[in-house]
Structure formats: structure tokens, C-alpha cells
Design a protein around this nucleic acid. Structure first.
Length: 347
DNA sequence: AATGCGGGGGT
DNA sequence: ACCCCAGCATT
């Protein structure tokens, strides 16, 4: 059902004026900074983004620098942040902007929406925050806050519900402060009207008109369908050393961790004998082999149960897929996802 | 409409 | 364990 949110606007803005967090990308909301921060913030918490944002804009201070950056440098700036296609899309969009928009992020919701990596939320956020265009920016926070206020048990993953909320917000978004309004809704969701645990309703500026609070239903809103369970995968991770170098290889260009670097790994959990057999068959002549124990790494949809071995070689076999690098080179040049961190740290 | 895509922090 | 996060692209 459609809902009239018109009463929340002034309470929300007054609260935001007093309670807005100081964030790096709020210092100077130039379109480029807003864009970078919003892409980083997709499915990623503010605290995780902070250090990445500063480093990114220092290294790539404008759209042109982003468009011309080497992919390795780009990925290195994103290493550990996850969802690595975000940064590739960022560069694709930067090139489009240089070629088709005179190097300027377009001040238009619909034009922004055409750029790689920019969907309805991000287009709304950039348009409203950087260009003061009165359009909604609906993220997970906004769904939670608005549906609790409305006391609505709508399934927020349904397109019809999303469209309706867009319309409802478009009606009340203040034309003089659209960016602040959108950020205030998100800020409220991130700090007061929080998921999990208990929302801090007594601190909420719109508690008095929140139906979820009045009904005591706020904790069971919003409604979304049950998520599927993660797939479990067993893997064997090999830390292979020859003299002062470690073997790494590049992952395939599609799928999980596409195009990133990894420690050599094998499907399934090999026991120590199998690990030795595999290594002498495919990698080289073994000087020593020791177990590095078990680890696990959780992705959004997959869980790796890993066993690791440290292998030192007397002699290496030719293998075009492996390259041999020092630890320092890994840290400087090669993007190694967090999944392998535990085993690298043991060496 | 459903699925794939990272990593981390809170309960 | 399970939650979800300033979502988007692809199928």
C-alpha cells in the first residue's frame, strides 16, 4: 500500500543537521568524490570504506586519472574491499565519461543510470547529493526505515513495492535539500533504526509517528524472503616456495574473484600424502612439506573449507600458469584476495 | 525473477 | 550460526 510520509521531512532534516556523521566524502561533495564513495559503499559498511576512499582519491584524483589507470593499480587499490567488478565498472564508466560526456559526470538521473556500475540507488545518490536533483536514493537503510514507519509488511524485494516507495518518496523529497534528505534517511537507518538487534527508538526523531514503534512490530520489519544456504567447498591451498619466492597464479576472468591472483589450490581436501603426490607430479621436486592446518573463508554464497600445505622445492617444473614472486612483490603488485590471507600469514 | 559476486562486523 | 551492509550485472 502507498503511504504518506510527508510529516517526517522536517523532523528528519533537523535531526540530520545535528547528528550527521563526519565522513571523508562529505567534506567536499564534488561529483567525482560522491561517485567513488557511493560505488565503494555498495553492500559495504561505512567503516570499511573510509581508508579505501582516501587512498583511492589520492592515487586517482579525477576521472581522467581513473580512465587511464593500469588495471593492476586499480585492483590493488580495491584489494580486500570485495566485489571487484565494481572497480572495473568504475573504470569503464570513467572512459565513457571522457569519451561521451566531456569528462564530466552527467547531472542527470537517467544519464547516470546508463553508466556501468550505476543502478537506481547510485544514480539517485549522485544526482541528489552532488547535483541537488530531487530524486530518491533507496538503499537497504531506506527500505528498513520507511517500511517500519509505515508499519508495512510488504516484501521489499518485490519490484512493485520498490516502485511504489520510489513514488511515495518522490512526492515528499524537499527540492531545496534532496541530498540531505536522502542521506538523513540512510543515516537514521545506519545509526538508530538499525537491523538485527534492537533499534534505538527512544533516540529516533520520528518515533512519535512511527507505526512500527506504536504497534511493536518494528523488529520484524522489513520483510524479505528467506535466503538460501551457502554452498560448502573443500579446497587444498598450497604455499609453494623455491628459494625466496612463492608461486602464485592468475584466476580465470569470470566467476568468483575473477582475474585476481591466488595461491595454487586444488579441489577437495588432500591429505598429506596426496598433497605430496600432487606437488611432485605437477610442481617440482620436493625438499620439504608441512601441514599449515585448516582454515575457512566465507563468501556471500560459498564457504571454502581449506587445508593448507607449505612446500619447499629443490627444483621447479615448467608451468606456464605459475609465476614466482617474493612476498614484497605480492604486497606491492599482485592483488591477492582475503581468502588466502590466513595461509600467507603463516609463512 | 533469480542468481552470482567479498568481506567484515554485530548479535 | 546468522544477520546484513549507502546494489548491480547478467541470465
Amino acid at each position: 500500500m502507498s503511504y504518506n510520509y510527508s510529516e517526517i521531512t522536517s523532523y528528519l532534516l533537523d535531526w540530520y543537521d545535528l547528528n550527521a556523521r563526519i565522513l571523508p566524502w562529505r567534506d567536499n561533495p564534488k561529483p567525482y568524490y560522491v561517485w567513488i564513495s557511493e560505488i565503494m559503499l555498495q553492500q559495504t559498511r561505512v567503516e570499511a570504506v573510509k581508508p579505501y576512499f582516501d587512498r583511492f582519491i589520492t592515487n586517482l584524483p579525477d576521472i581522467k586519472a581513473l580512465a587511464m589507470a593500469e588495471e593492476d593499480k586499480l585492483l590493488k587499490l580495491w584489494e580486500g574491499l570485495g566485489y571487484y567488478n565494481r572497480v572495473r565498472n568504475l573504470q569503464t564508466a570513467a572512459i565513457t565519461i571522457m569519451n561521451e560526456y566531456d569528462g564530466v559526470l552527467p547531472p542527470s538521473y537517467n544519464e547516470l543510470l546508463k553508466l556501468k556500475g550505476i543502478g537506481p540507488y547510485t544514480a539517485g545518490a549522485i544526482a541528489s547529493i552532488a547535483y541537488q536533483i530531487p530524486v530518491p536514493a533507496i538503499d537497504g537503510n531506506v527500505y528498513r526505515v520507511t517500511k517500519r514507519i509505515a508499519g508495512s509488511f510488504d516484501d521489499i524485494t518485490k519490484a512493485s513495492v520498490q516502485k511504489e516507495l520510489e513514488k511515495d518518496l518522490l512526492v515528499i523529497i524537499p527540492k531545496d535539500r534532496p541530498g540531505d534528505f536522502n542521506q538523513a534517511l540512510m543515516e537514521l537507518g545506519a545509526t538508530i533504526c538499525i537491523p538485527n538487534g534492537k533499534p534505538l527508538c527512544e533516540k529516533c526523531p520520528v518515533m512519535h509517528l512511527c507505526r512500527g514503534f506504536r504497534n511493536g512490530t518494528m523488529c520484524s520489519i522489513p520483510i524479505k524472503p528467506e535466503k538460501k544456504k551457502r554452498k560448502l567447498e573443500d579446497r587444498t591451498i598450497l604455499v609453494i616456495e623455491y628459494q625466496d619466492k612463492i608461486a602464485i597464479r592468475r584466476r580465470e576472468n569470470k566467476g568468483l574473484l575473477a582475474g585476481l591472483w591466488e595461491l595454487p589450490s586444488v579441489d577437495g581436501k588432500l591429505n598429506i600424502i596426496e598433497g605430496e603426490e600432487y606437488s611432485s607430479k605437477y610442481i617440482g621436486n620436493i625438499k620439504s612439506l608441512e601441514s599449515l592446518g585448516e582454515e575457512k573463508h566465507i563468501f556471500s554464497h560459498i564457504e571454502w573449507r581449506m587445508v593448507g600445505y607449505r612446500i619447499r622445492l629443490n627444483k621447479i617444473m615448467e608451468d606456464n600458469n605459475l609465476i614466482w614472486v617474493t612476498r614484497e612483490e605480492i604486497e606491492e603488485k599482485y592483488t591477492l584476495p582475503s581468502a588466502f590471507e590466513a595461509y600467507i600469514k603463516k609463512i
